[in-house]
Simulated scan of single mutants.
Amino acid sequence: MSASRGLEGVIVAESSITSIIDDQLTYVGYSIDDLAEHASFEEVVYLLWYKRLPTEIELKKFQAELLENMELSDQIIEHLKLFDPSTANPMAVLRSTISLLGLYDPEVDDMSEEANFRKAIRLQAKIATVITTLARLRQNKELIAPDPNLSYAGNFLRMLKGPDVEALEVEAFNKALVLHADHELNASTFTARVCVATLSDLYSGVTAAIGALKGPLHGGANEQVVRMLMEIEEVDNAIPYVKNKIANKEKVMGMGHRVYRTGDPRAKHLKEMSRKLTEITGQSKWYDMSVKIEEYMKKEKGLPANVDFYSASAYHCMGIDHDLFTPIFAMSRTSGWVAHMLEQYDNNRLIRPRAEFVGEVQQEYKPVEQR
């Protein structure tokens, strides 16, 4: 038996949630292109959890349940007030707060299917409010309640920024949530499945997944992309900056993907949203800069942009704080994490791989005074 580094190419589970075949991404058999152009995030969440699209009545009920569960208790809000906004990493805050939500959920250890779906609703609803509450508190701004007339994407932006949100922003943000919702057995999703395979609860699974997503090689990529754009600052600086990165054998963030060989099918949708948003906000240089970098990397290294690359400039032009990019990723991906955890529960077997031992053998113990 030989080890496969990073489990590359190893099939560890059967799933009917997401497929990546010949660089084409589908959710439950629906093309990501079709969903990105036509579906609301709520429809996609329902699709991932129930393995089918909702009827109009089912969708309205689902949207209402999400809205009803967005409110945070006083205990959670007080908890969020304890963090020092100048030093607290929002992903660390999110990880701790999701864990705390489980502590206050009376159904946390009820493993029935009905209870798990109720907890799933609460998790998906409240994670949005946790992020917006943290953002508002650290800016000393009044908290904003969700509006029953708005979508999940619209409510998040309203609770984050206030009532003055452009329709194009909501459209772009909804697309981003749809595109980030699930992606087969990525690091955080695999972490969630490993966690609940022990028959731990959904809150533990999401907390574990957030811990995995926090790393810069997974969820932190779009935050690093926008940091790169800020360092470049002007379009004419883009190519010299990238050439210098390559010469120093440094990674250019947002380029290439572990799974896709010909290109990330999600990137083109966010590229178009980035173009539109930078144009209407008078910040086209971020889009122009990004296009230059992408074209150069494709030509010189054969690496096209991935989903993180254009989400960075899109979020920036919406006025979203850069350190909230990864928590937003977690908010969207919670839908996929939950889908995978529910699927794991349905046909569970403890996930327990083996390791190839490469250490010293046949060593003899010596008393401490002889070492």
Score class of each variant (00 low, 15 high):
306 N>Q: 01
248 N>P: 03
221 A>M: 07
336 G>A: 02
34 D>S: 15
81 K>R: 12
10 V>F: 09
15 S>G: 05
360 E>F: 07
56 E>M: 11
220 G>L: 10
356 E>Y: 12
160 L>Q: 10
244 N>P: 00
200 S>L: 08
123 L>W: 04
20 I>K: 00
209 A>P: 09
199 L>T: 13
166 E>N: 09
144 I>R: 08
160 L>W: 10
272 E>I: 01
258 R>P: 13
52 R>G: 04
341 M>T: 04
193 R>K: 14
94 L>Y: 07
144 I>E: 06
297 M>Y: 06
364 E>Y: 10
33 D>Y: 08
330 A>T: 11
282 G>I: 06
44 V>L: 00
10 V>M: 12
306 N>F: 01
159 M>E: 02
251 K>L: 09
187 A>K: 08
228 M>H: 02
206 V>D: 00
71 E>V: 11
289 M>D: 09
138 R>P: 02
210 I>Y: 03
307 V>Q: 05
36 A>R: 12
171 E>P: 02
282 G>Y: 09
199 L>H: 11
266 R>T: 12
66 L>T: 01
255 M>A: 02
341 M>V: 10
300 E>Q: 04
76 I>K: 00
47 L>T: 01
40 S>C: 03
335 S>N: 06
363 Q>R: 15
78 E>Y: 03
221 A>V: 15
56 E>H: 11
38 H>D: 13
318 M>S: 03
62 F>K: 08
331 M>G: 09
371 R>F: 14
108 V>E: 01
172 A>C: 12
199 L>F: 09
223 E>D: 05
267 A>H: 13
140 N>Q: 10
85 P>S: 13
321 D>A: 15
117 F>H: 15
40 S>P: 02
109 D>T: 00
262 T>M: 10
34 D>T: 11
40 S>N: 05
155 N>Y: 02
50 Y>F: 08
232 I>E: 03
59 L>F: 15
262 T>C: 02
315 Y>K: 11
198 T>I: 07
317 C>G: 04
116 N>H: 07
91 M>T: 04
66 L>H: 04
125 A>Y: 05
248 N>H: 12
188 S>Y: 07
273 M>N: 03
225 V>R: 06
195 C>D: 04
94 L>H: 07
157 L>H: 02
360 E>R: 07
337 W>K: 01
233 E>K: 14
193 R>V: 14
73 S>K: 07
305 A>Y: 00
292 K>S: 08
10 V>A: 03
24 Q>C: 00
3 A>S: 15
303 L>K: 08
99 S>M: 01
61 K>D: 15
137 L>P: 09
154 G>E: 04
190 F>W: 15
4 S>R: 14
73 S>H: 09
132 T>A: 11
172 A>F: 02
237 N>S: 14
20 I>A: 00
192 A>V: 10
1 M>Q: 15
71 E>G: 09
343 E>V: 15
17 I>K: 05
96 S>L: 04
99 S>W: 00
223 E>F: 02
351 I>Q: 12
259 V>K: 08
166 E>L: 12
363 Q>A: 12
358 V>K: 12
118 R>L: 03
72 L>P: 08
